[in-house]
């Protein structure tokens, strides 16, 4: 019983690890203030769920489609906002996340609205169905590992060095001949693609998705994971997801009503964030924090 619950928890933590690592690429490494990461998560989930439910598209194809559609929306969002100065991207992504949730809620004929989309099949690859929690945990762990290796690799290449340079001082990066808009677009698209993968993994695990799963508050949770773990550290994102999701778990054993536990959880997050920001402003493993940018 406890084991099953732990494995279930691990699946969810793994999905959040992918979300945190992918957001870190855009936010921690490139300095793009993306508040709507959750929308890319939702796009991945809905894309692969709808494909599976309506057309019987196999899981792995749906997963790739989810990643691609999320990346496409990342690009669409990037084109008008990344050329502008300042943090328009923050506003655009926030607005995008709110609109996404509203559309999923109101486009009833497609998404079944607030009632949610049930009956998403468990993934099957080469005839093997990942129906047990254990097998799904393994599947998620593999994706966490792949995400980790990929993002760590690209951030250590000269490509990643340019991302960090843009984060540090975009104007100077431009003056050194870097097409910074292009780099920011690629970074955001990859970040969105991995969020889409996380969404697809979530949808096919829970087998049911509803718009409320992808509310903006979820974005705040992911951003909190980055801040706790440290912006610009892939390992930090893994640690941040682990800490934030495990920390409130002991609360379950307290004899308290559900609503009180929910509130306590928020209080614990707030305290933890405050503590971290005071004691270690750049997070447990981080190298960078947001600050005011200079101009020419």
């Amino acid at each position: 019983m406890i084991e099953a619950y732990l494995m279930h928890l691990l699946v969810l933590i793994g999905i959040y690890m992918i979300l945190a690592m992918s957001l870190n690429l855009a936010m921690g490494f490139t300095g793009l203030l993306n508040i709507g990461h959750v929308a890319f998560y939702g796009i991945g989930a809905y894309t692969s769920a709808l494909l599976a439910v309506n057309f019987g598209v196999p899981f792995w194809l749906g997963l790739i489609a989810g990643a691609l559609v999320a990346a496409l929306f990342g690009l669409l969002l990037a084109i008008p906002t990344l050329k502008l100065k300042g943090d328009y991207l923050a506003l655009a992504t926030l607005g995008f996340a709110i609109i996404f949730e509203a559309v999923m809620r109101n486009w009833v004929s497609l998404t079944n609205g607030s009632l949610g989309l049930p009956g998403i099949p468990k993934p099957a690859i080469f005839g093997f169905t990942f129906s047990s929690t254990f097998s799904y945990m393994i599947l998620v762990i593999i994706f966490v590992a792949l995400t980790y290796l990929f993002i760590r690799h690209i951030t250590q290449t000269p490509f990643g060095r340019v991302l960090k340079a843009i984060r540090e001082d975009e104007l100077v990066a431009k003056s050194l001949g870097k097409d910074t808009v292009k780099f920011k677009m690629i970074s955001l698209a990859i970040s969105a693609a991995f969020a889409g993968i996380a969404g697809s993994l979530y949808a096919h695990y829970v087998t049911f998705i509803a718009p409320s799963t992808f509310s903006v508050m979820e974005s705040i949770l992911i951003i909190s994971m980055l801040i706790v773990g440290g912006l610009g550290s892939v390992e930090g994102s893994i640690l941040g997801a682990l800490v934030l999701l495990l920390l409130p778990e002991p609360l379950r054993f307290l004899p308290l009503p559900i609503y009180a536990i929910g509130a306590l959880r928020q209080i614990i997050y707030a305290l933890l964030l405050t503590l971290i920001l005071i004691l270690r402003p750049s997070g447990l493993l981080g190298e960078f924090r947001f600050r005011r940018k200079q101009d020419a």
Binding site: H153, I154, T157, P158, F159, G160, R161, V162, K164, A165, E168, D169, L171, V172, A173, L176, G177, K178, I186, G232, E287, F288, Q294
Partner: peptide, 27 residues
């Protein structure tokens, strides 16, 4: 205006075009 959180050598390495800045090459 240097890149403060990058090393001195990294600051210099960014000055020139590098084929590894192309993501396809990097991967």
């Amino acid at each position: 205006r240097l890149f403060p959180k990058l090393t001195v050598l990294e600051n210099l390495l960014l000055a020139e075009h590098h084929s590894g800045e192309n993501l396809i090459n990097a991967i």
